[in-house]
Simulated assay, not measured.
Amino acid sequence: MLDIAEELDRWVGQGRDFAVATVVAVGGSAPRQPGAALAVDREGTAVGSVSGGCVEGAVYELCRQALEDGESVRESFGYSDDDAFAVGLTCGGTIDILVTPVPVGAPAREVIAAGLAAAARGEAAAVARIAEGPAQLRGGALLVHPDGSYEGTLGGHRPPDGSGPALGGHPALDRAVAAEARAMLDAGRTGVLELGADGRLCGEPLTVLVESSVPPPRMIVFGAIDFAAALVRIGVFLGYRVTVCDARPVFATRNRFPEAHEIVVDWPHRYLAAQSAAGGVDGRTVLCVLTHDAKFDVPLLELALRLPVAYVGAMGSRRTHEDRDARLRAAGVGELERARLRSPIGLDLGARTPEETALSIAAEIVAVRRGGTGAALTGARVPIHPDTAGPVTGRIGSVA
């Protein structure tokens, strides 16, 4: 749901009734991951996708039905050899879908609206909803902030005057889910929590969907060259917040990089050190060093390779790489740290132009991020949609 937050935030502002279908779990080769969503308003307008087209029609009708009867529902879709014409995924995978009506006046609308607004602003937030469990607990929502505080409840409807705990719920349920959701938010993860049955809690097992929205990951491009301009464009396309940094003010200009979110004139290593100290880089940050000039590269990479970032790549020929590696070794950078460096940067696509080179760099970044091999899928015996992290599942025995 939070992946289409900007559009849904507008719908909330316009006072539209809508229902949202969200992918809860996937199995096998499925085109979309947990958190992917399709929303439908009262007029039949749709936004988003849960399957890339395979089951959109059926999910659309589920949303329309949810708006009519006001009931949340969970449905599974998969491929059936017994009925090739049944609604399902032609790719052979399975997906579980949670459909939640969010009309004006719904108990959870205010909480969901706050989560959508936060995500639309690019702020970190997590929204938890009951995906499977007792009927009296469905329809609630919990908005969890990075500091662990939360709004709303998963315990069903509150009394009409808004006082007291949610009817049919238990405050410990909200506290436990908030704690788990905060941990998932810290990691930028979306998935399900399975809570163990506890008579003092609700008497039945619960499955809770937690969707996390975090600010866009950063791509910092060092070296204001023509290849950097192409990389900035594709970085923005992939959803990164892109910064260009170069010590030469004549090259680091807005005219040369109109699509960059930020342009910085500073020595690369000095800028990266300041960003690291200020918490401006994290485990999702990618660093692309395109200067291929030792006086810039070596002090920059000496720092970059010791930071817990997702990717560090450096442009240059194999001869340049060997010289750079020797300089880094002489500077005291260890073997394991130097092994993190992707150099020469990018995948072997036979790239020549700046645009082709940017594509090869971006392809390597995606492969590292998603656990891909970079090999052609034709004839390969590898999953098309690898799940490198495995299912996101927390198990809580008792939260009373």
Rank of each mutant, 00 (worst) to 15 (best):
P159V: 02
R129D: 01
A166T: 09
L137R: 04
T153F: 11
G168L: 07
D161W: 13
P171Q: 11
P134E: 06
L173H: 03
A181K: 03
P171Y: 13
T153M: 09
L173N: 03
P165H: 08
G162L: 09
G162M: 13
E180I: 00
G169M: 07
G140Q: 03
P159D: 13
P146N: 12
P159K: 06
E151D: 15
S149Q: 15
G164L: 12
A181V: 09
D186C: 02
G155A: 08
A183I: 02
G164W: 03
S163C: 00
L185G: 05
G139C: 10
E132P: 01
A131C: 06
Q136F: 12
R158S: 02
A183G: 02
G164F: 09
P160M: 00
E180G: 09
A166G: 05
P134N: 08
S149C: 07
V144A: 08
A178S: 11
L143K: 09
A131V: 05
R182S: 03
L143V: 13
D161I: 11
P146Y: 13
H157A: 03
P165N: 01
A172R: 11
G169K: 03
G169C: 10
P146E: 14
G133F: 00
G139V: 08
L143R: 13
P159G: 02
D174G: 05
H145V: 01
R129Y: 00
D186A: 15
D161E: 15
A135W: 10
R158P: 00
D186W: 07
T153Q: 05
A183F: 10
Y150S: 10
R138M: 14
S163E: 11
D147I: 08
I130G: 01
T153R: 07
L185S: 05
P165I: 05
P146H: 13
L143F: 08
G140F: 07
P165D: 11
L167M: 14
A131H: 05
G133E: 01
V177W: 08
G133D: 00
E180D: 13
D186F: 10
D161S: 06
L185P: 08
